[in-house]
Amino acid sequence: MTFVLRRLLGFAATLFVAAAVIFFLLDLLPGDPARFILGINASAEAVANLRIQLGLEAPAWQRFFAWIGSMLIGDFGVSYTQGAPVAALIGERLWVSLPLALFAMVLSAAVGLPIGIAAARRRGSPIDTGLMVLAQLGVAIPNFWFGMLLTLVFAVGLRWLPTGGFTPWHEDPAAALRALMLPGIALALPQAAILARVMRTALVEVTGQDFIRTARAKGMTMSEAVWRHGVRNAFLPVLTILGLQFAYLVAGVIIVENVFYLPGLGRLIFTAISERDLILVRGITIVLVIGVTLTMLLTDLCYALVDPRLREGGS
């Protein structure tokens, strides 16, 4: 199990380094949170009061270790501007962003992989060319623009779905789901396009390999050979991309949530940065870093599942 252990250690080290970078970089950012909260008519005295209250007066290294220490016991601090616990603020936003990202990921896989397989099976045919042109287009379209287009057609024009906003799950799950439809599709499109292209390339490469020929020689049809041996082998590069996609999704979520005024993590970090709510920015960023590195870790572990050669340090 050295493979797993090595990965876990790497995971912890990445988190620590990321935390340090996040903390000290943000500390250099110009702008005083206390002044931002109280505005331009507040006296220097009121601002000083607030700085003490927010705990901004201690030296940076002290605040850093205090921050790390309290995070280890699950305390992310209290937001400067909103006065609410950071963990709670992030927690309630995850109910929007996580389903959104998951939905987008499932949708992109459900659309992208079959397209990639279909194109590879008919390599060189007009269908292949057509699908790959579409995929190229999908990669090129920015998701905020696609989101606006979807809004115009399905919300403003047809009025099937809302233009944005979010009804909490506990109030009306159906409405919550409807609210995630358009943003989910907007997020999924570019990812689906990338997946389709990777899947196609990987499959095309695999079908030229010896083991497919052997399988054919054993009497399998081409379809059987591709399904039983090809897809599984082609899945390694696809897995890599799926893992990487999580990071892209996080970036996409920030933009798409603003287009659809969804109360998710992306919008939260957007406002937190402009309001210099540093403790909140740090909290969100570290949660995102954990999310991304965790997906990487899971992808690595999935490799081991898919490819037995990786399990024992390459032996």
Binding site: M148, T151, L152, A155, V156, R159, P162, T163, G164, G165, N258, V259, F260, Y261
Partner: peptide
Amino acid sequence: YLFIGDTATLTNALLAGD
């Protein structure tokens, strides 16, 4: 009170009656 910062989004929300 709904919080919509983006002008294009707000335009659509008004036009759609949201």
